[in-house]
């Protein structure tokens, strides 16, 4: 991978990390953020690596753990933050909040909190891309838990049958709610299920952004060559609880510590330093500029007005 591209990846991950850590901070302030806040801290390489392999016109479908996906696809931090705050200036005018943020401007067309709900929709967008003969693909992000829903199985079957240009990205962060993978399924790798639908199933290190990028790039080329879908399973780990209100009682402390040592952001940073592609000085400057983007986003959200109550009635129909 070219150094320039790799620095882009690094930058993308840093933005997600800062964004999510800021939200953790804000969640500690009582009544600052409404609702349940669900973060992807520690999983940045999946979002960044996948989206770096996509073009702007490619579509992503996301799930409840969406902030990383959206930012990596190019969503504006200001309006995403304002949406999380529930403000009028939020990208969905406060209708959606943290859990279902849609950013059609960057083709992040659906974020659903219904586990598995996005997978059939990705089949639909990929169908439209194929139907209109566009050189575009759809990426669908979902968790290991979602692979237990019927929608996963129906969708993979149909997508494979019709050679649809869709990449199923299973973000396996070990947990589904409070259940460990071995408590909710007997398979060791979700990717193994691809064989049941005659599509390639690939396991990648989900903490290695470059590996994720490569796997996605290959899958995308297959899609564009008309060879149909791929299931990519990214093995990663959820540093935080399911949501910020979750005290992680069921997550062994040493397990969290072990995975934190395998920090995806530090990994790429080390590699860039070793290759002489970036200096420590440049790293601090980059961190500073990213921290400022996030600070600005919070300020934008805080200073934005609430939606007026009657605005609740808007946007139900076209």
């Amino acid at each position: 991978m070219e150094n320039k591209k790799k620095i882009e990846l690094y930058r993308s991950m840093l933005l997600i990390r800062h964004f999510e850590e800021k939200l953790t901070e804000l969640c500690r302030i009582e009544r600052k953020l409404p609702g349940m806040v669900i973060l992807c801290t520690g999983q940045e390489a999946v979002a960044a690596g996948t989206c770096a392999a996509l073009e702007k016109d490619d579509v992503i479908i996301s799930n409840h753990r969406s902030h990383g996906h959206l930012l990596a696809k190019g969503a504006e931090p200001n309006t995403v933050m304002a949406e999380i705050f529930g403000k009028k200036t939020g990208c969905n005018k406060g209708k959606s909040g943290t859990l279902h943020i849609a950013v059609p401007e960057v083709n992040a067309l659906c974020t659903t909190t219904v586990v598995g709900g996005g997978i059939p929709i990705a089949v639909g967008t990929a169908f439209a891309q194929q139907y209109k003969k566009r050189r575009q693909v759809t990426v669908c992000f979902f968790g290991n838990g979602a692979a237990d829903e019927g929608s996963f199985h129906e969708s993979l079957n149909m997508a494979a049958l019709w050679n649809l240009p869709v990449i199923f990205v299973c973000e396996n962060n070990v947990y589904s709610g409070a259940q460990r993978m071995e408590e909710h399924t007997k398979v060791k790798d979700i990717a193994a299920r691809a064989a049941g639908y005659a599509m390639p199933g690939v396991v990648v290190d989900g903490n290695d952004a470059e590996a994720v990028f490569k796997a996605t790039t290959e899958a995308r080329l297959r899609c564009l060559a008309g060879e149909g879908p791929t299931l990519i399973e990214c093995k990663t780990y959820r540093w935080r609880g399911h949501g910020e209100a979750d005290h992680q009682a069921y997550q062994p402390k040493d397990e969290i510590a072990r995975w934190m040592e395998r920090c995806p952001v530090k990994k790429i940073e080390r590699e860039l330093l070793a290759a002489g592609a970036i200096s420590n000085q440049e790293i601090s400057e980059l961190e500073e500029s990213i921290a400022k983007i996030v600070e600005d986003a919070v300020r934008f959200a805080e200073e934005s007005p609430w939606p007026a109550p009657l605005e609740a009635l808007d946007d139900v129909y076209v």
């Binding site: 409404p34 529930g86 939020g90 406060g94 209708k95 909040g97 609740a312 139900v316």
Partner: peptide, 16 residues
Amino acid sequence: GPDIPVPFSPPLEQFY
């Protein structure tokens, strides 16, 4: 409740 999906933002949800 009015004929809308339940909105997220606190003032909107309260309206609902």
